[in-house]
């Protein structure tokens, strides 16, 4: 579903991603771990075309973006990829001038050009799915962080993505609100959604992930199934990372 081949990204002379190769198969739940500044967000942003890649290539659901292709071709491919992949941000980024329902149906109306009543039907179904059927008229400013993030997930799902990218979806939340977002993500996983998740929620990673990737300094240090990753890491860097996590 997602393959990156020698994907690299630098900002001026700062190399943030150094030849990354990852593979996310259909229905995989891949959790990316790594210290701050290791390039996790940048990787997701590249995959969603929010950053232009510097080298290598990647493929999402059959659409290829190659750093050596012309800028126009890359942009075209990027736009097609965005229609097939949903992105959930750490800061939710809900549209403050639209209600919960308005946020969910915006893409259906503007991008998919669905008639309003059809969009509303789909939007209500999705709000119900994330447990917010009774909040459709609320503006984001009147929703809790956890509710906002669930609306944001519904907004992404509305576009019927083949794969969902999550960038630390619970990091901006108060601890007591983390659970409600994670349980929506667990349900998604059970329904067979392909997911690439940057997160520090170790319990979620352990229980839901099909594969864990550890990144540091723009490199992939280790990738393994959760059990092996946590019980028997091969790399010293991974052991150090897990020790640091456990101390918190």
């Amino acid at each position: 579903m997602i393959t990156t081949t020698g994907l690299s990204k630098h900002f001026q002379d700062h190399e943030v991603l150094k030849s990354i190769n990852i593979e996310v198969a259909a229905q995989d739940i891949v959790v990316v771990l790594g210290p701050s500044g290791s390039g996790k967000s940048t990787l997701l942003r590249c995959l969603n075309g929010l950053e232009d890649i510097s080298g290598g290539s990647f493929e999402v659901n059959g659409i290829v973006v190659d750093a050596t292709a012309s800028r126009r071709l890359r942009q075209q491919a990027t736009r097609n990829i965005r229609k097939q992949s949903g992105m959930v941000f750490q800061q939710f980024n809900l549209y403050p001038h639209k209600t919960a329902l308005g946020n969910v149906i915006e893409g259906l109306i503007t991008v998919k050009k669905l008639p309003k009543d059809q969009a509303v039907t789909i939007g209500r179904k999705l709000l119900d799915r994330v447990g917010l059927a009774d909040r459709e008229e609320y503006y984001p400013s009147r929703l809790s962080g956890g509710q906002q993030q669930r609306v944001a997930i519904a907004r992404s799902l509305a576009m019927e993505p083949a794969v969902m990218l999550f960038d630390e979806p619970t990091s901006a939340l108060d601890p007591e609100l983390v659970g409600e977002v994670l349980s929506v993500m667990r349900e998604l996983a059970q329904e067979g959604m392909t997911m690439l998740v940057v997160s520090h929620e170790m319990k979620f990673a352990r229980e839901v992930a099909t594969k864990i990737i550890l990144m540091a300094d723009g490199n992939i240090i280790e990738e393994a199934a959760p059990q092996r990753f946590f019980e028997d890491p091969k790399e010293e860097r991974t052991r150090r990372f897990l020790r640091q996590i456990n101390e918190i």
Partner: peptide
């Protein structure tokens, strides 16, 4: 208008013009 607004709009597949018209301008006008 925060950059995240544009990014959210782009990530649902909007073109720059759609994002400007539907997401950025209404907030900017306020």
């Amino acid at each position: 208008v925060p950059k995240g607004q544009l990014e959210a709009a782009y990530s649902t597949g909007m073109t720059p013009w759609q994002a400007m018209r539907r997401i950025v301008l209404p907030q900017a006008m306020r």
